Amino acid sequence: MERIPITKEGYEHLKKELEQLKSVERPKNIEAIEVARAHGDLSENAEYDAAKERQSFLEGRISELSYKLANADVIDTSRVARDKVVFGCRILLENVDSGDEVTYQLVGPDESDISKGKISVSSPLGRAILGKVPGDEVVVDAPGGKRCYELVDIL
């Protein structure tokens, strides 16, 4: 069974989403199915079809979240070493070509959100930066071509 790395915050977020789906969304959808079923002929009942489709989506997501939570490898990022880049740490990178600086946190695939400065350890940049120390250069093959960064600091 594959363990899925995740921060404590990411684990809690997935747990909260699962609880919301089970306690709010699923019952609401069951009610929508009952209401649509009460309208009679199910063969041409768009409300019923939509509710059944939503039920399928909800059950799939509940199953997916349950699997991920059961196989989660929760990593306490407060205890992460700061001498080299590892899962959970925050890093400051400088784009060698433009001089632009960016800060990222390395997280599990289910937590990555570039708009919040969180990148997956399994992304090209995440894989390239693991194990590096401040001062190291990192070259990443990006869709727009190669990008060079310098690891300025581990925060």
Rank of each mutant, 00 (worst) to 15 (best):
L69G: 04
D83R: 08
D97A: 15
K84R: 15
I62Q: 12
A128M: 02
Y67H: 12
V139S: 14
G126K: 07
D141G: 01
R90K: 15
P143L: 14
L106K: 09
V85G: 06
I129V: 15
P134W: 04
L93C: 12
L65A: 08
V86S: 06
Y104L: 04
K132V: 11
L58Q: 02
I62W: 10
G126R: 02
F87K: 00
Q105A: 07
P143E: 15
D110P: 09
D76C: 04
I119W: 07
R61S: 07
L69V: 07
D97C: 00
K132S: 14
V102T: 14
T103V: 12
V74T: 06
L125P: 03
L125S: 05
V140K: 08
R127F: 05
G117M: 03
E137V: 13
I129G: 03
S78H: 08
V102A: 11
I62C: 11
A142L: 15
F87H: 00
C89A: 13
V140A: 04
N95E: 13
K84M: 12
R79S: 11
G131Y: 13
K132N: 09
Y104Q: 01
D73P: 00
C89M: 05
E101R: 15
S78K: 08
L130R: 10
D141E: 01
L130C: 09
F87R: 06
V133A: 15
T103Q: 13
V85H: 04
D113M: 02
D110F: 03
E64Q: 12
S112N: 11
K84Q: 15
T103H: 06
A81V: 14
I114R: 00
V102W: 07
A81M: 00
E101Y: 05
V96S: 08
N95H: 12
Y104F: 15
V80N: 05
V139K: 12
G135I: 07
K116G: 14
V139C: 10
E59S: 06
V121S: 02
L125M: 13
T77W: 03
S120K: 00
E64I: 00
V121R: 04
Y104T: 03
D76P: 07
S98E: 10
G126C: 06
P109N: 14
E137L: 12
V138E: 09
V133G: 11
E137A: 10
D97R: 15
S98V: 12
Y67V: 04
I114C: 02
N71S: 13
K68D: 02
V86P: 05
